[in-house]
């Protein structure tokens, strides 16, 4: 394992210190907890958004704390859902009296830990609502699974629900728009190389020199299958096909696109992918309202990417294009 770290056990703590030292105008630490909240938290008269999950997905989620997106982010150990007490502290720190929306990615651990935190906060009479993001079409949504995973599409939930909260909307309204995003966002990813959890010290899997993992999750979990590496165009088309087959996108629909890097894939390659994605959508008459290309929901130093597509209506579009000002997502 070759990493720029000190002790593996300290990496989350030191990262959080580094984040706060880098961005004091945006965020502050909830002392004693692995929680980062807006520098001016709690914001009175606004529904607050809290998200989080295991660390290792940076800039998710701490990088999205700021005006127009999250109010708080909870950092678990690397790839491990944070514990309920941590989430509970985040909720307490950001609640401005209008309630708190928890944005949870659909993993058993995250759902359970955030649920327990919600119970704790409700016992304090804090209004809490929850949404669970499950955008990954790689995983079949059959009755015999825990449902789909939440991956990069989560960033759209942060952006849009965050913008809604900024308008002064109620907790129910913010939750409703978050659920609308979840209903309309689909993602799928692939990996070219594994990543190494610092505390584990070695990669969680290996891939042959010509092999890729399709349907890769964001925690080094194996995907749906392995195959020989194909061209960027073929790979992009394959992932996009899966996405387009899952949800009804039709000519004239407007979408937002996110080409998300998993960590080690150069922006150059992500743009090559975007070229093909835009071409395919263009052929189908699907309008692209906005495209994001970059590392938004990573998996440490994994090489690979995911494609997310969000179907927009007038409300979602307006909220997506609204300003945001956070360490990792700034938009005029």
């Amino acid at each position: 394992m070759k990493k720029v770290i000190n002790q593996a056990e300290q990496v989350v703590e030191e990262m959080l210190q580094g984040v706060v030292l880098a961005h004091p105008q945006y965020v502050k630490r909830v002392e004693g907890f692995d929680v980062i909240v807006r520098a001016n938290a709690p914001v009175a008269g606004k529904v607050a958004l809290v998200s989080g999950g295991g660390s290792g997905h940076e800039p998710s989620h701490g990088g999205f704390v700021g005006r127009g997106m999250l109010d708080g982010a909870v950092a678990g150990a690397v790839f491990t859902s944070p514990t309920p007490d941590q989430v509970y502290e985040a909720v307490k720190a950001v609640d401005g009296g209008k309630g708190v929306l928890l944005v949870i990615k659909n993993y058993t651990g995250d759902v359970m830990n955030f649920d327990m935190a919600a119970e704790m906060a409700e016992a304090d009479n804090i209004q809490v609502a929850k949404v669970v993001v499950n955008d990954d079409v790689a995983v079949e949504n059959s009755t015999w699974t825990t449902g789909r995973r939440g991956i990069a599409g989560t960033v759209f939930v942060h952006k849009i629900a965050g913008a809604k909260a900024e308008t002064g909307a109620s907790l129910e309204e913010v939750k409703a728009v978050a659920e609308k995003v979840i209903a309309n966002v689909r993602s799928m990813g692939m990996a070219l190389s594994p990543c190494t959890v610092p505390a584990a010290g070695k990669p969680s899997f290996t891939l042959a020199e010509d092999e890729v993992e399709i349907g890769m999750g964001i925690h080094g979990e194996p995907g749906t299958h392995r195959e020989s590496i194909r061209s960027a165009d073929e790979t992009a088309a394959h992932l996009l096909d899966k996405i387009l087959a899952d949800i009804d996108f039709t000519a004239g629909d407007e979408v937002a696109v996110l080409i998300n890097g998993l960590g080690a894939t150069p922006l150059m390659e992500l743009y090559v992918v975007n070229r093909k994605v835009a071409e395919i959508l263009g052929e189908k008459g699907i309008q692209i309202a906005k495209t994001y290309v970059g590392n938004y929901m990573t998996s440490l130093e994994m090489a690979g990417f995911s494609i997310s597509l969000l179907k927009l209506d007038a409300e979602l579009k307006e909220l997506l294009l609204a300003p945001a000002d956070t360490p990792a997502f700034v938009q005029f």
């Binding site: 944070p82 514990t83 309920p84 941590q86 830990n113 327990m116």
Partner: peptide, 12 residues
């Protein structure tokens, strides 16, 4: 355990 393990196994 609840406050230190995290993940699925912590709450369980």
């Amino acid at each position: 355990l609840i406050s230190t393990v995290g993940g699925a196994s912590g709450p369980l």
